[in-house]
Amino acid sequence: MVTLRNIIHSAVAMMVCFGSLAGMYALLGAPIVAAAQVLIYLGAISVLILFAIMLTQAGDANLPSPFHRQVWAAALVALVVVGLIGWAVTATDWGNATVVVGIALDAMAEALFTDYALPFEILSLLLLAAIIGAIYLARRPEDDERAN
């Protein structure tokens, strides 16, 4: 995904990435998360990104990525991080984290609206802030002056 020069190709490669993540969630015994991954990331966000690219790219989409000059440095850092994480994963006793525990849909829904009620409500505040910010940034400056 990061090595492709055409941004549309990158976006499609990202969809494959999202899809494989959904498969991983399903294997880990979290079918609800997997379904949400397909619906939201694969379905909505990918399409949104493709639309955003189509609407903002004028003409040729084959623009060189500004990060291509640092490709060797980036590859080196990525290798080091992969090595560290690989070492940590193999060297650790993960205890019962390896046991796959599923959770039923109704139990999850109940937890979301009882124990997790506060984080859930704060998230809605965060979304409201994001929406207002997006509207402000996307609005034409002339409309700002009229609003002010």
Partner: peptide, 24 residues
């Protein structure tokens, strides 16, 4: 809790990004 902590952090910095780019 790390969940509330992370959401709180995002709620703080998301508007901060906007303030940095406020002069469009």
């Amino acid at each position: 809790d790390l969940i509330t902590l992370f959401i709180g952090l995002e709620l703080m910095v998301m508007p901060a990004y906007l303030l940095a780019g406020f002069h469009k």
